[in-house]
Amino acid sequence: MDAREQRWEFAVAPPRSAPGVGSMVGYRALDVPDAVHRGLPSSRLTFIVSLDDGVEGAATAAALAATGPIPVILGGLHVRTSHVRLRRGQAGVQLAVHPLAARALFGVPAAELSVTDFDAAAVLGRPAVDLRDRLAEAPGWRERFALVTGHLVAARGRRRDPSVRPEVAYAWHELERSRGCLPVGALADRVGLTARHLGTLFRREVGRGPKTVARLIRFEHAVAAIADSVRRSGGVDLAGVAAATGHYDQAHLTREFVSFAGVPPRAWLAEEFRSIQDGGHAGWSDWADDEREPDRVVDAPGA
């Protein structure tokens, strides 16, 4: 590490650490100024268990002013940036959860999770509060990761029939395999449904149609590529990122960034540069190929 002061501490759990989880990251703000962070949309659900009073997050900047700390956050598949207040010392464990694992892990399809009210208490109840208390008492990140994994494995074991329609599961896998570049018509043909029927099944299960999911997958690959480039070289070739992530050109990538993040990519990069250098925005795609069975159960770390 260079001589500059680090603002964030990040700890990353090993791949396949928990059922249905694409990534599990422990975070702690060491020296961050009071600011509002953009929570970018993605094709994953956001599940955060705080180690402090909670996260102050809202769907809009205006709503953030009236929002108090939320100890456990669970958000649906949103397509607009959320707003999170940053402050020194805040810490927690953040998970990117496959939407098709929502039934198994949370007892409801992802379509029923709010994209504006992030408080998990209404869905998860007392067990989520107990999990947060246990994490706050754990001595380190490894122990916290093991507690989260144990909680999710136990939740999965209580569900009698958490499976989703096989057409939806296979279609989602094909979208991931193509990195969001497979046209919806071709996708529907592969699963033997009309595009309209496939769209109905997707919206019923995850709250979004397959075209929107494809856009989200392309967008998050672009975000990961930008972050990886900054960590390696301190800069980024946006035209190259656009070409590598299925966007027509740099202008197309910029339009998608504005649609999802609210700002162009270079404006977002200026806001997040220090966080990226400290290890934030690690590419979720490192785990994508392991998630064909998003609700599978795996052993806890060190078990």
Score class of each variant (00 low, 15 high):
R203C: 05
R38D: 05
T81W: 07
V93N: 01
R215W: 11
R232Y: 02
G39P: 11
G125D: 00
A261S: 02
V263T: 14
A59I: 12
A146N: 02
A155Y: 00
V230H: 10
L45E: 00
V263K: 14
H98W: 00
V184T: 13
T81N: 13
D249H: 02
V213W: 09
V230N: 09
E176Q: 11
S43Q: 11
R16M: 06
D228C: 10
I276F: 03
A146R: 06
R38T: 13
V168S: 08
A111W: 01
R255N: 12
V206M: 09
A195I: 14
A11G: 05
P99T: 04
G54V: 13
S229K: 11
H37A: 15
G280R: 00
E271R: 15
H197V: 14
V115A: 04
A282M: 11
R266N: 13
R196Y: 11
P15N: 00
H247M: 05
A122G: 09
T149Y: 05
Y27I: 07
G207L: 02
H37I: 15
M24W: 02
G92L: 09
L105M: 04
R266L: 02
G75S: 08
S259N: 14
V241K: 05
L201G: 06
T245P: 01
V168M: 01
H78Q: 02
R85K: 09
V223G: 10
V298D: 01
R38N: 12
P294I: 05
A101N: 02
G157L: 08
I70G: 04
L193I: 11
H37C: 15
S233D: 05
P127I: 00
V84P: 10
A120P: 02
R87M: 10
P139D: 06
H98S: 00
M24S: 04
L131I: 04
A65M: 13
